[in-house]
């Protein structure tokens, strides 16, 4: 056989590590915010945008992005949306409970390509979770980046995540934060409209580095706006979601043409994936 690692010397890809829930919060009816700490004490060395398989024995595993900045190595955050068997079971857990994780997995944001530039992050719905890791990273090392513009859109005001963070960002001078909802409610005084209605509110140049993470329909509309500004596609980074089972490039579910979202992504330069017929 030509492939020369022996199985007795290899790590078992599917054997998870245990993590303890340090803290929980319930930002919306469907989403729960967990702060986790590895039980073996080994910190998880991840990049913003990378993912993990978060699991609960008997229930299964789900792929999920890190929602906190790696600048805090002691703990990490995830936000779990109750959509399926595993996420619903995980969202029953409370501080002190344990679960399992495998990771970090995949490719995150290439921070070197963002440093020293204006950065625009466009997040839609739960797409704020994986980008929150990058947002907090940038805020923690603010002087490494130039202008920092953040667009956040949700369907309704009650679906906003990380409302404490949002309050904080609204008041920060070195963050140009804009938010919108597709449909307002009586208490909402902000912008109403799809995410692209935020673009006229700020002057952006073609040297901007842009990051997009949102629901499947989101990308092509945002890219159209960035094309208007003249941002080259290799400077646009998209964080994609697919069905994923193994997280290690084997099970095939997350394929976008010949790419495996779990190992080639989930963060791609737009130029890498724009011609893939199955990407958008």
């Amino acid at each position: 056989m030509s492939h020369q690692c022996h199985w007795t010397e290899a790590v078992d890809l599917f054997l998870p590590r245990e993590a303890k829930i340090v803290k929980t919060a319930q930002p919306t009816e469907l989403e729960k915010h967990f702060t986790l700490q590895m039980i073996d004490g080994e910190p998880v060395d991840f990049q913003p945008g990378q993912i993990m398989e978060l699991g609960l024995l008997g229930y299964g595993e789900i792929p999920i992005g890190f929602a906190s900045s790696p600048t805090n190595p002691e703990t990490f955050d995830v936000v779990v949306r109750s959509v399926g068997r595993v996420s619903k079971a995980i969202n029953q857990l409370e501080a002190g409970d344990t679960l399992q994780m495998r990771g970090p997995l995949g490719h995150g944001f290439d921070l070197d390509k963002l440093r020293g530039h204006d950065v625009l992050i466009v997040a839609g719905g739960i797409g704020l979770c994986p980008t929150r890791s990058l947002i907090n990273y940038i805020l923690d090392r603010r002087d490494e980046f130039n202008r920092f513009v953040l667009f956040y859109g949700t369907r309704e005001p009650c679906l906003q995540l990380f409302t404490d963070d949002l309050a904080c960002w609204r008041g920060m001078e070195d963050v140009e934060y804009f938010e919108t909802v597709d449909q307002g409610d009586p208490s909402w005084t902000g912008n109403v409209g799809v995410i692209t209605t935020l673009f006229p509110k700020v002057e952006l140049g073609p040297e901007t580095r842009a990051v997009i993470c949102g629901p499947p329909v989101f990308y092509k509309f945002v890219v159209r706006e960035l094309d208007g500004i003249g941002v080259p596609h290799e400077n646009i980074f998209v964080d994609l979601e697919r069905r994923m089972k193994c997280g290690v490039g084997k099970c095939g579910h997350c394929q976008i043409n010949d790419k495996y979202t779990c190992v080639d992504g989930p963060v791609f330069a737009y130029s890498e994936v724009e011609d893939l017929g199955e990407a958008f």
């Binding site: 492939h3 690692c5 022996h6 890809l13």
Partner: peptide, 22 residues
Amino acid sequence: LDQTDLLYSERNFDSSYMANRQ
């Protein structure tokens, strides 16, 4: 099998398969 060996051992080495193979 040779193709599967390559695909199951490249990038991430899948011991669940490769142990049986080896």
